[in-house]
Design a protein around this nucleic acid. Structure first.
Length: 526
RNA sequence: GGCGCCGUACCCAAGUGGCUAAGGGAGCAGUCUGCAAAACUGCGAUUCAGCGGUUCAAGUCCGCUCGGCGCCUCCA
């Protein structure tokens, strides 16, 4: 089941072509670095795509770049560069962010500037059909000609007019009409067209790119909730007026990422870039955080929430590490841990049952409108259940059959592949980042641990404790004496501070606020 | 002004008519441990913003009130 913004309820996904899903998601306008709100959208649809593939669909995922637009032009002018240079730079920045977040590349990443002829073709056809008109070098869509306008955003033409915030331009026949083609001013980037040099309006590019790559009717069209109106409403109008067929079967909109209860956005200036966040938190921590709330609900960005996610992720990795160590122990002759495959016993049966139950619950959750919070809940249930089993077997002098340990680990890893989590080796994750000094640090830690083990053997606990203290203070390493020897892991480090402390103070100046300052809450209360 | 969303324990967060209100984080206590850590066990909402209503049964449906937010303009 998948929630469709158009119908307002969950529906079964019925692709146009059985077994294949065409999915288009509105990408970003490449005029600046992306903030965490953009990351949410990308991660959400990354997971949706993976869940669909897991369910056996052949998915074609298209996500565009808006690489020509007023903001890009403005930015280029400010920096004395070309629009192309700006677009290229921030496209690269976006890719870097996505790669770090483990967001897989879509199958196709079309550029608006690469589809100008397609847009012109659509616009020309719309004019012929009387759905659009040219005026003063612009081409506008005649909204009143499209009777079902407002179906997606559930508002009537009258209501929209009553809103009175619609820009009334001199060329418009009607205030609600929107631009398909925009005449360029001298010096601005321009493409030749039947209506003179100009550039595409924002909405037409998505229609053109979606239809070009996925056909006239696409199965899933997604984007942030803020795109629902007018962007997606306009896409529907122009596309359906053009083809006469339904444009999209299921509309999917992700909720906002809030900060201090407000939407994180460029125009409010209350954003943290993905790079800023990743400087303080591991990408998987960020992903877990983003997936811990259902994709349609708002999620609150805060240091505390990120730290909670880090703790939760550590718990999962500790569990995965335990599985692997148990496996080694059980198969090592030294331990002779009896847990051969035939040792199944009663607990083995329970355990297999628990793993299966987890798989079922996980799939069920993901199938129910991609309910990642429930999916994660089922995962942590499994963690608790298996930890419990392992402890109880241990107390009986036995170990859990290695096959089942492997089966459990695989189940978690499969879930992790869909969510983009648990992609690290558990020991490497727990021990902390390697890097240039990593090996050096590791050797030193190992040496101290061995030294302490010797001290413990000699029952020199004073020295052992001293070494532990040193490891914690100098290496931020915490020790864990277990039946299989001493293991160590990095202490959950405190974030380095700056970014999160302010907790979303608005950025005072910044170009984003230009002309917008005071739009809200500028102190002039009535 | 129009349309819409949200309000669940200290924090985060599922649950959308019916078993004891998932799960994570934090806290406290216990088991284990030379000491720790982890893990496990127990404690923690007789209650789901408030008030009415529908129903045999409501956190879940309806109405009102209070509080927060979003879209209507570029925005994931």
């Amino acid at each position: 089941m998948i929630f469709n913004s158009l119908t307002g309820r969950k529906e079964a996904l019925v692709p146009l072509v059985p077994g294949r899903v065409g999915m288009y998601v509105c990408g970003v306008t490449v005029y600046d670095h992306c903030h965490l709100g953009h990351a949410r959208s990308a991660v959400v649809f990354d997971v949706i795509r993976a869940a669909l593939i897991d369910r056996g669909y052949k998915v074609t995922y298209v996500r565009n770049f808006t690489d020509i637009d007023d903001k890009i032009i403005r930015r280029a002018r400010e920096e004395g560069k070309t629009s192309e240079e700006i677009a290229a730079a921030y496209t690269a920045s976006f890719h870097e962010d996505m790669d770090r977040l483990g967001v897989k590349r879509p199958d196709i990443e079309p550029l608006a500037t690469g589809h100008i002829p397609d847009m012109i073709a659509i616009i020309s056809a719309l004019i012929e059909k009387g759905a659009a008109y040219s005026a003063g070098g612009d081409v506008l869509f005649r909204v009143k000609k499209f009777s079902s306008y407002g179906a997606l955003s559930k508002r009537s033409l009258d209501e929209m007019l009553a809103g009175a915030r619609v820009e009334v331009s001199e060329h418009k026949e009607d205030p609600l009409d929107f631009v398909l083609w925009k005449a360029s001013k001298p010096g601005e980037p321009a493409w030749p067209s039947p209506w003179g040099p100009g550039r595409p309006g924002w909405h037409i590019e998505c229609s053109a790119m979606a239809m070009k790559h996925l056909g006239e009717t696409i199965d899933i069209h997604g984007g942030g909730h803020d795109l629902l109106f007018p962007h997606h409403e306009n896409e529907i109008a122009q596309s359906e007026a053009y083809t006469g067929r339904p444009f999209v079967r299921v509309w999917v909109h992700n909720g906002f990422l809030n900060i201090n209860r407000e939407k994180m956005s460029k125009s409010l200036g209350n954003f943290f870039t993905i790079k800023e966040v990743l400087a303080r938190f591991d990408p998987e921590v960020v992903r877990l955080f983003l997936l811990s709330t259902h994709y349609r609900h708002p999620i609150e960005f805060s240091d505390q929430n990120l730290r909670d996610s880090r703790s939760a992720l550590d718990r999962a990795y500790r569990f995965l590490d335990l599985l692997e160590r148990e496996r080694k122990d059980a198969s090592s002759p030294v331990h002779g841990g009896g847990g051969g495959p035939e040792d199944g016993g009663t607990s083995g049966g329970d355990l297999l049952e628990q793993v299966r139950r987890f798989e079922d619950r996980f799939d069920e959750a993901m199938s129910d409108d991609f309910n990642t919070p429930i999916a994660l809940g089922s995962l942590f249930d499994l963690v608790r259940d298996l930890n419990r089993q392992i402890v109880s077997e241990r107390s009986l002098g036995r170990s859990v059959p290695t096959e089942l340990l492997g089966r459990a680990g695989e189940a978690v890893r499969r879930a992790g592949r869909i969510l983009g989590l648990f992609q690290h080796d558990p020991r490497a994750w727990l021990e902390g980042p390697g890097g240039r000094d990593g090996d050096e640090r590791r050797r030193e830690v190992e040496r101290l641990v061995a030294e302490r083990t010797a001290a413990r053997k000699a029952r020199d606990f004073a020295l052992a404790d001293e070494i532990r203290r040193r490891l914690e203070e100098e290496y931020a390493v915490v020790l864990d004496d277990g039946p299989g020897g001493t293991i160590w892991r990095r202490k959950a480090e405190e974030g380095s501070g700056e970014t999160g402390k302010s907790g979303g103070e608005k950025r005072g100046n910044g170009e984003e606020r230009r002309g917008e300052a005071g739009k809200r809450g500028n102190g002039e209360a009535e």
